[in-house]
Write a protein that binds this DNA or RNA. Structure first.
Length: 863
RNA sequence: GCCCGGAUGGCGGAAUUGGCAGACGCAACGGACUCAAAAUCCGUCGCCCUCUAAAGGCGUGGGGGUUCGAGUCCCCCUCCGGGCACCA
C-alpha cells in the first residue's frame, strides 16, 4: 500500500517502505537447496561513537544494489550485516568514564543500526552478529582452541611498546615518533609474554591460494609481497675456532660465494658472545646494548643512513675456497629472518657494499656485467669471474652448480624463506575475547592429560621466574569464557591486562574435565580432577572476531556448532566480498589463514573464504582531501537523508564515478540526481498525485523509444553485474529524458523503467510501482529481459574519413558493401573536395563504423 | 629506493577488440513561463581563428614511436595517490 503524497515527499515515503519491508520480512534468507544462492558480503563495521561515515554507505549501497538485482533474477540472496565491536575506543571510553565498555558498545550499535536501517539496505536483520556477544565469541574461542590443539598457537616473549606514564602497552599505531599518541609520553620496548599464532606454517598455502581467487591484482600482489617468499640456500661456514661449530647462513645468491669477504651476524645472534675475542668484548657489548635499546622502527628509519657494526675478532672459513673471512655484527642483519647471519658479498649487494665502504673491507668482483660495465655494486645478470672452477658460467647455472656441489659435501641445501612472521595474537587489554586457557604446573598438566584427549601433541609452556607453566585449554563445554566484571578498566600497571587485577576470576581451582572453577580463596573441592590454576590474562586482538564472521552469518543461532554442515554447504562462501583496500593485507590474510586451518580440520568445505573481492574507493571531502574531524569536511549520511532522502544519497554515491575510484563529494552535484528522481516522479504522477494523463495502456511507444528501452534493460543489467553503477545510472537518465519528451508513454514501459531503477532507488520505485497499479512490491516482479530483435537497426551512421580525418557522415543501410559506401562517400559534398585530383591509395572499411579513404598527398615542397 | 594505480572541458566523469573524444550530470550563459522569484521547460556550452557564419586548425599530463587511424598499443619523462622498505 503506497502513501498518498502528492509530491515526492521522501520523508514520508522512505520510512513507509522501510516498515513495509520489515513487516513483510522481505529480505529474510531461508536456505532452500532447490534454488540457486547468492551470498553477498560487506565488511562489517566497527560501531564507533561518531556514527556512520559517508564511506560506509558507499560500499553498502553497492552491495545492496547487487543484492536486490540478484533477488529479481531469481537468486536466493544472503545479505547480512553485523558488528566488529571489540576494540580500543570502547575500552578507552570505559577507562575515562568508568562505565562498562559493553554498555557504550551497545549504544553505538543501536545508533549504527538506526542509521543503516534509514538507508534502506536489504539486510536480513535476523542474522545480525555481534563479536562481543558471548554466544558469538564462544565460537571465536572454540576456533582458537582448534588452532591450539593443532599446535598452531604458542607463547613467547615478544617486545611491545610500554608507556610507563600511562602504565600500559600500546599498539604500534598508538606510538608516534617514539611518544604515546595520547599525552605524548615517552615509550619503551619491553618483553612481555604473548600468544603467537603460527601463520608461517601456512605461508606456502597462502601464496598458492591466491591463484584461485578473483581479487584485484594489486591486492594479490600486496599479500604476495607481505608473505615474501624467497628461494635460496643455507650454507655452513666453519669457524676458525672449531670448538664453536659451524655458522649457518642464508643466501639467495650462492653463485657469489667467491665474492664473500666477511660475515655478518645479527647483534642478537646466539653465537656472538662466544665469537667475541677479549680485545673486542667491550666494543661488541656496547654495540649490542645500543641496538637492543632501538626498536625495529628506529632500525628501519636509520636504514638509509650510515651502516654500523663491530668486528667480533673471530674468523670463519669460506667453504668454497678456504678463504679466512672476518665475522662482524651489524644491525642491518635481522635475527628474525633466515638464520640471522649472512655471508657478505659487497661487490654484488647494495647493503654489503655500503658496509664494506664504511669499514674498508675488500670488494672483489665475481660477476661480470652483461653490458661490460665495471660499476659496483652490480646486482644484475652476468657471468662468473674470479671463481676458479666456475668462471664463464651464467649466474643461474652457477647458482645451481655451486648449490649442488655444496649439497654433495653436506654443507649446503636449498631453502625457502618468508618475510611473513608469526602473528602476535594477544593484547594486554580488557575489551577482547578472553583466552580459554588456564596455566597449571607440570604435575597438574599430567593429571589433565591423563583425563582428556583434546590436548596438543606438544604442551604449550612458558617459563616464568624459573618455573615452567603449562597452558591447559578449557574443554569445549566450558565455553564461552566470559569477561569478569572489573573495578577499573585501567591496566594492571605491570604490563598485564586489567584482568590480572580480578583475583577471584584469576586464581582458581579448576576441574580439568569440565572446566568448572571456584575462586582459589575457597577450599579446594574434593576430587582428583581439581587443580590449582591461574587464568590467562591477555585477550585476543580485534582481528579475531572478524576472522570468521562470514561463516557465522550462515547459521547465526546455532548453539551446537559455529555453523551446521548443511548451512556451510548450501550458502558456501561469499560470492562477492566488498570492503576497503586498507584491509588488503591484515584482515584478509588472517581470515584466509583461519579458513585454511578450518578446511584442513574438515570443518569447512572449501580452502579459500573469499572467491571474489572488490574494494570501493575513498570519498574525499568537498575540498578534495580526506574527510576528517579536524578539517571539518565530514558529511554525515543523516544530514543528507534529511535534506534529499536516502534514494538520492544512494543514487548520488553510485553516480559519483567508478566504485573503485577515489572521488570527491559535491553538494552541488547531488542536486542533479535528486532532480532526476523528481522528474521520474512527475512522469508517473500529476500534481494531484494521480496517474499522469500521458500514460496509456497498449502499444503507444515510438519504435526508437522501445529500442532505447531495450538498450537500457541490457546496459543496466550488464553494468550492475560489472559493478559499473555510474554508467548504469547515466543510461537510465538518458531513457528518462526520452520518456519525458515522448507525448505518450505506455504503462508497461514505465513499469520496466521502475524495475530497473528499483535496486538503486528502492523506496521511490516501490511507491511509484504501487501507484501505477503494480502489486504487491516491485521487488517481486522478475527482472525484465531485453529483446535482441528490438535492438536491430536497419540503417546507421557511417563516418567517412580522408587520411584519418573526419570529413563527413553517411546514413546507410546496415549491410552496405564497401564499394557502395565508397561510391556514396566520393559523392558526398563535404568529402569530395578532399579527394579532388588525388589518387586513392587505399580504402579502409570497418563495417558499421568507419570508411577511411587514404589518398596521395602531393608534396608541398617546404612545410 | 622498489612494486602497483592514475592524469580526459570551468568541475565529477563517459568512450567493446585501436575506429565520430567529451555520453550523463554539475556549473555557466541565452530564451520561455511569471508582476517578480523559485521550480520547470527549450537552447548554447573543449580551445583557437572569424563581425556572425561557413570552412578550417589544434586538442585526452609532456616528448618520441607503431598504424590508414592512438585517450586506448610501445619507449622515455613529469606530477599525484597507494603499498613495501636493510628480509641477505
Amino acid at each position: 500500500m503506497a502513501t498518498n503524497s502528492k509530491e515526492y515527499d521522501f520523508r514520508q515515503i522512505e520510512p513507509h517502505w522501510q516498515s513495509f519491508w520489515e513487516k513483510n520480512q522481505s529480505f529474510k534468507a531461508v536456505a532452500d537447496p532447490s534454488r540457486p544462492k547468492y551470498y553477498i558480503l560487506d565488511m562489517f563495521p566497527y560501531p564507533s561513537g561518531t556514527g556512520l561515515h559517508i564511506g560506509h554507505p558507499e560500499g553498502y549501497t553497492a552491495t545492496d544494489i547487487l543484492a536486490r538485482y540478484k533477488r529479481a533474477r531469481g537468486f536466493n540472496v544472503l545479505h547480512p550485516i553485523g558488528w566488529d565491536a571489540f576494540g580500543l575506543p570502547a575500552e578507552q571510553h570505559a577507562v575515562k568514564t568508568g562505565t562498562h565498555p559493553a554498555a557504550n558498545t551497545q549504544n553505538n550499535i543501536t545508533n549504527f543500526r538506526r542509521q543503516i536501517k534509514a538507508l534502506g539496505f536489504s539486510y536480513d536483520w535476523e542474522r545480525e552478529v555481534d563479536t562481543t556477544d558471548p554466544k558469538y565469541f564462544r565460537w571465536t574461542q572454540w576456533i582458537f582452541l582448534q588452532l591450539f590443539r593443532k599446535g598452531l598457537a604458542y607463547v613467547d616473549e615478544r617486545p611491545v611498546w610500554w608507556c610507563p606514564e600511562l602504565r600500559t602497552v600500546l599498539a604500534n599505531e598508538e606510538v608516534v615518533d617514539g611518544k604515546s599518541e595520547v599525552g605524548g609520553f615517552p615509550v619503551e620496548r619491553r618483553n612481555l609474554r604473548q600468544w603467537v599464532l603460527r601463520i608461517t606454517a601456512y605461508a606456502e598455502q597462502l601464496i598458492d591460494g591466491l591463484k584461485d581467487v578473483d581479487w584485484p591484482e594489486s591486492t594479490k600482489r600486496m599479500q604476495e609481497a607481505w608473505i615474501g617468499r624467497s628461494e635460496g640456500a643455507e650454507v655452513l661456514f666453519k669457524l676458525e675456532d672449531a670448538t664453536l661449530g659451524d655458522l649457518k647462513i642464508f643466501t639467495t645468491r650462492p653463485d657469489t660465494l667467491f665474492g664473500c669477504t666477511y660475515m655478518v651476524l645479527a647483534p642478537e645472534h646466539p653465537l656472538v658472545a662466544a665469537l667475541t675475542t677479549a680485545a673486542q668484548r667491550e666494543a661488541v657489548e656496547a654495540y649490542r646494548r645500543k641496538t637492543a635499546a632501538k626498536s625495529d622502527v628506529d632500525r628501519m628509519s636509520e636504514a638509509d643512513k650510515e651502516k654500523s657494526g663491530v668486528f667480533t675478532g673471530s674468523h670463519a672459513i669460506n667453504p668454497i675456497n678456504g678463504a679466512r673471512v672476518p665475522v662482524w655484527i651489524a644491525d642491518y642483519v635481522l635475527m628474525g629472518y633466515g638464520t640471522g647471519a649472512i655471508m657478505a658479498v659487497p661487490a654484488h649487494d647494495e647493503r654489503d657494499f655500503a658496509f664494506a665502504k664504511q669499514y674498508h673491507l675488500p670488494i672483489p668482483r665475481v660477476i661480470a656485467a652483461a653490458d661490460g660495465s665495471d660499476e659496483l655494486p652490480y646486482t644484475g645478470d652476468g657471468t662468473l669471474i674470479n671463481s676458479p672452477g666456475y668462471d664463464g658460467l651464467a649466474w643461474p647455472e652457477a647458482k645451481n652448480k655451486i648449490s649442488a656441489d655444496l649439497a654433495a659435501r653436506g654443507i649446503g641445501k636449498g631453502t625457502v624463506n618468508y618475510k611473513l612472521r608469526d602473528w602476535l595474537f594477544s593484547r594486554q587489554r580488557y575489551w577482547g575475547e578472553p583466552f580459554p586457557i588456564a596455566w597449571v604446573n607440570e604435575a597438574d598438566y599430567r593429571t589433565a592429560a591423563a583425563l582428556r584427549q583434546d590436548l596438543p601433541a606438544q604442551p604449550v609452556t612458558f617459563v616464568e621466574q624459573g618455573v615452567t607453566q603449562y597452558a591447559l585449554p578449557l574443554p569445549d563445554a566450558a565455553l564461552p569464557l566470559v569477561l569478569p566484571e572489573v573495578q577499573s578498566y585501567l591496566p594492571s600497571g605491570t604490563g598485564e591486562s586489567p584482568l590480572a587485577n580480578v583475583t577471584a576470576w584469576l586464581e582458581i581451582w579448576l576441574e580439568v574435565r569440565t572446566g568448572a572453577s571456584v575462586p582459589a580463596t575457597q577450599a579446594k573441592p574434593s576430587g582428583a580432577a581439581w587443580v590449582r590454576a591461574r587464568r590467562e590474562t591477555n585477550t585476543m586482538p580485534q582481528w579475531a572476531g572478524s576472522c570468521w564472521y562470514y561463516l557465522r552469518y550462515l547459521d547465526p543461532a546455532n548453539s551446537a556448532a559455529f555453523a551446521s554442515p548443511e548451512a556451510l554447504k548450501y550458502w558456501d562462501v561469499p560470492d562477492l566480498y566488498v570492503g576497503g583496500a586498507e584491509h588488503a593485507v591484515l584482515h584478509l590474510l588472517y581470515a584466509r589463514f583461519w579458513h585454511k586451518v578450518l578446511f584442513d580440520l574438515g570443518l569447512v568445505p572449501q580452502s579459500e573464504p573469499f572467491k571474489k573481492l572488490f574494494h570501493q574507493g575513498i570519498i574525499l571531502g568537498e575540498d578534495g582531501v580526506k574527510m576528517s574531524k579536524s578539517r571539518g569536511n565530514i558529511v554525515s549520511p543523516d544530514t543528507i537523508i534529511d535534506s534529499h532522502g536516502t534514494d538520492t544519497l544512494r543514487l548520488y554515491l553510485m553516480f559519483l564515478g567508478p566504485l573503485e575510484a577515489m572521488k570527491p563529494w559535491s553538494m552541488q552535484q547531488i542536486e542533479g540526481v535528486h532532480r532526476f528522481l523528481q522528474k521520474i516522479w512527475r512522469e508517473c504522477l500529476d500534481l494531484d498525485g494521480n496517474v499522469n494523463a500521458k500514460i496509456a495502456d497498449g502499444e503507444v511507444d515510438a519504435p526508437e523509444t522501445l529500442r532505447l528501452l531495450h538498450e537500457t534493460i541490457k546496459k543496466v543489467g550488464e553494468d550492475i553485474e560489472g559493478l559499473r553503477y555510474n554508467t548504469a545510472i547515466s543510461q537510465m537518465m538518458i531513457l528518462g529524458n526520452a520518456l519525458q519528451k515522448a507525448p505518450q508513454v505506455s504503462r508497461g514501459t514505465l513499469r520496466i523503467f521502475l524495475q530497473l531503477l528499483a535496486p538503486f532507488a528502492p523506496h521511490l520505485a516501490e511507491e511509484l510501482w504501487d501507484r501505477l497499479g503494480g502489486a504487491p512490491s516491485v521487488m517481486t516482479a522478475p527482472w525484465p529481459t531485453h529483446d535482441p530483435a528490438r535492438l536491430a537497426v536497419t540503417e546507421f551512421k557511417l563516418v567517412v574519413q580522408v587520411n584519418g580525418k573526419h570529413r563527413g557522415e553517411l546514413l546507410v543501410p546496415a549491410e552496405i558493401t564497401e564499394a557502395a559506401a565508397l561510391a556514396l562517400a566520393t559523392a558526398h559534398p563535404k568529402v569530395a573536395p578532399f579527394l579532388a585530383g588525388k589518387p586513392v591509395k587505399r580504402v579502409v572499411h570497418v563495417p558499421r563504423k568507419i570508411l577511411n579513404i587514404v589518398v596521395e598527398v602531393p608534396s608541398t615542397g617546404n612545410l
